[in-house]
Write a protein that binds this DNA or RNA. Structure first.
Lengths: 244, 244
DNA sequence: ATAAAATGACTGACCAGTCAGTCATAATTC
DNA sequence: GAATTATGACTGACTGGTCAGTCATTTTAT
């Protein structure tokens, strides 16, 4: 958060040229070649656009790793650049500043979550099976991917990005919980879900939150069998005598 | 860096006196007077000792506010000092560095939690009542106090302070969950708690975690009736047909 | 040849931690 | 008990290092 442009005047440039360090040129050139090879290694005789798109992806991926390893404040953009195999300045061709990079990262990772889940509200499965499928999706699509790190980031830093929290709530959570609430209400009418649960869909999601927070803090210290925990939870909520 | 007097020797003092900057003296004096007035404003004709004790407290209180408002990295010790009504240097008389201050703060706030809870394992109440009492303790002693902010801090920053996470796990969580597990096992034997729950006491605590995280992120946006949510949870876990 | 993209040295703000100096209080002396 | 000296809690200007963001220059694509 420092913006003190000042604006250097154009004009005196000629005089400076002599100062350019030469020794470095060769080295830098080599490193650069490697980078470019990497960027284009897929196959396409990389057009500008293709490369540009790739860059964005690379930056976001690197940023995710750095941010989730050190947190927003402690993460250094130099490291993000290094990890992405580019120079720091390049980041600024794709993102206005550190804040923007962070927010676009979370937004891009979090919003797509609804897709899969919202659709599920439609299928009219028995509640327990639906819950089990939900659990599988959670484990496969969130817990075992980097999305869990994104959620961790949201939890850890969300407070200082209220706009981000709002987006996440509006575009993701409120929709998921609304769908869940509807499903739960129907299930309760059929006697497949406890009364009152529909009002607090958070209680369905709670073990997921526990899983993410616990493994983040005590993962090595005291591993948690997440699938089993969630199964236990489901059995308690949706069947007096669970089958499996 | 310069001379290293450690305690100026008596003798040459006279000569130096002239060098003392004057312009500052008056200003500094005034500021100081204000500080001292504030420090002693309670009533005690502040003795050295009494003041010293108060300072530590004041620093910890200020640090809690700053840390939980901005996070560990972004919090500035100058602001902590300002909030505590002291100078930055003073912090270093009581804490080695920023890390230490942070860790001692969390440790001091978190460890005492066990006291109340562990005792409860003894009383042999019906499970549901025990759960309700637990919920009341949580709401009164954690959720409605600054301890919830401390837990939030632990969640947000704990990953980068593994030693702290370990202490928290060993000295607090493992004990609480062990006690809870035992209670749940007995309750299950009496038919008052679902089988399997004893293995995952985290499931009892889950709504508490939800409460803390939710209110931190979406508190203003979508308030959550924490007590009601927890009651719903208890009713589902511990009675087929809840009474209230 | 020209434009667009990328680079990385550089700048300036920022902040943890230091330390020489101050001064209220305590200890000692007369 | 008044005057003198010693103590150490407290201060805040300062240092050294860090890092977000800029921009003149170089590289690449067309």
């Amino acid at each position: 958060m420092a913006a003190k442009p000042g604006k250097a005047k154009p004009g005196k440039t000629k005089a400076d040229k002599a100062r350019t360090p030469q020794g470095r040129k060769a080295v830098a050139g080599a490193a650069r070649a490697a980078v470019l090879r990497r960027a284009g290694d897929g196959s396409t005789p990389n057009s500008r656009q293709a490369r540009g798109a790739g860059r964005r992806e690379a930056i976001l991926a690197a940023a995710l790793d750095e941010f989730s390893e050190r947190g927003f404040e402690a993460a250094r953009l130099d490291d993000v650049a290094k990890r992405a195999g580019i120079a720091k300045g390049t980041i600024y061709l794709y993102f206005r500043d550190k804040d923007t990079l962070f927010q676009e990262l979370l937004r891009a990772m979090l919003v797509p979550i609804i897709g899969g889940i919202e659709a599920m509200g439609q299928a009219d499965l028995p509640m327990k099976q639906l819950a089990e499928r939900l659990r599988d999706i959670f484990i496969k699509e969130i817990f075992e991917t980097k999305r869990k790190d994104v959620i961790r980031l949201m939890i850890a830093e969300g407070r200082r990005f209220p706009k981000l929290a709002e987006i996440y709530y509006r575009e993701v959570l409120s929709r998921i919980f609304e769908a869940l609430g509807a499903v739960l209400k129907r299930a309760a009418a059929r006697g497949e879900a406890p009364e009152g649960l529909a009002e607090f869909p958070q209680l369905i999601a709670a073990p997921g939150l526990v899983a993410i927070v616990w493994t983040g803090l005590f993962g090595e210290l005291a591993p948690l069998d997440v699938r089993k925990m969630m199964q236990t939870h489901i059995d308690i909520l949706f069947s007096s005598r669970g089958k499996s």
